[in-house]
Simulated scan of single mutants.
Amino acid sequence: MPALKLYGTAPVDLGLVDLSPKEMMFWMYCPIKLPGSWNITTPENLDQFNDIVQRAYENCDEQRWIDSYVYLTAKTLWVSKDNPGNRPGWHSDGFMTDDLNYIWSDRNGTEFWVPPQLYCFTQDHHASLPEMELAGASGPVRTYPDKHLLRLDEFVIHRVAEQTPGFRTFVKISVSKDRYDLEGNSINHAFPAWDYVPRGIERNHTTSEKK
C-alpha cells in the first residue's frame, strides 16, 4: 500500500536573494539544464537570475540536480487585483511528483496554507483542486519576507496573493525528472527541440505524462 500523503507543510525559507529586476518579461518553464549534465544554459536576458539558480543548486541534492531537468520561470509584469500575474487559487506545485520548486518574488508574496493538522487530498489532478480550495478557505495563511527564496515540494499548498497595482517580479526554479512539454512553455533554442502538447486548464500538472 502506498504511503499516506499529508499536505499543508510550510516551505523552507532559504533567505534573502537581493535582486531588483527592471525588464518586463514573461518566461514560462524555460529549460536551462538537461538530465545527465552539470551545465546551466540560460538565454542571455535570464542571466540576471543566476544568483537564484545558484542558491537552488546549493540547496538541492547533488545527484538529483545532475539527473534532473531544471526549468526557469521569470515574470516581471504589471499586476493588480484583477490581473495577479499567476493563476489564482490554492494548489500544489509538482502535485503527485517528487519535483522541487524554488520561488522568489519582490513584492506581494505568495500565501501559504499551513494548518495545525495536515490533510490528505485525492491523488488526482482534477479532483484535488476543489478539495484544496475548500481546505485553504479555513486558513491559517502564512507569508514570508519579500525577496526570500522559498523551497516547495508537493506537500506545500499555496496561492498567489491579492495584488496591489504595480510591477512585480516572480521567479521559479523547477527541478524535475519529467520533461515539461505543454504548449506555451518557453523554448530554450540552445537545446534540441522537443514536441509540445496542448495544455489543460488545471494547474496541478506540468507534463503530458501526468494527465
Results as ranks from 00 to 15, higher is better:
169 T>E: 06
98 D>L: 05
97 T>M: 06
75 K>G: 09
125 H>N: 11
128 S>W: 00
131 E>L: 11
175 V>L: 11
148 H>P: 05
86 N>M: 08
48 Q>R: 15
76 T>E: 06
87 R>T: 10
39 N>V: 09
130 P>N: 00
108 N>G: 08
70 V>G: 02
72 L>H: 06
29 Y>N: 14
42 T>V: 13
157 I>Y: 03
24 M>V: 11
147 K>N: 05
1 M>I: 11
116 P>G: 12
119 Y>L: 12
123 Q>T: 00
19 L>S: 09
81 K>M: 09
76 T>D: 06
132 M>K: 13
52 I>F: 09
120 C>G: 08
143 T>V: 15
99 D>K: 01
2 P>N: 06
93 D>E: 14
108 N>T: 00
51 D>W: 00
93 D>Y: 13
15 G>W: 13
181 D>W: 12
76 T>G: 04
102 Y>V: 08
148 H>A: 03
142 R>I: 15
89 G>D: 08
208 S>M: 05
99 D>Y: 10
168 R>L: 08
27 W>E: 04
48 Q>M: 13
99 D>V: 04
190 A>K: 04
152 L>C: 01
51 D>T: 08
99 D>S: 11
85 G>K: 09
189 H>Y: 15
161 A>L: 00
79 V>L: 07
108 N>H: 10
6 L>Q: 05
15 G>I: 11
40 I>V: 14
205 H>D: 06
105 S>Y: 15
171 V>Q: 07
208 S>V: 03
29 Y>W: 02
49 F>M: 07
159 R>G: 02
39 N>L: 12
111 E>D: 10
208 S>Q: 05
116 P>T: 10
113 W>F: 15
147 K>R: 12
99 D>I: 02
49 F>W: 11
118 L>Y: 08
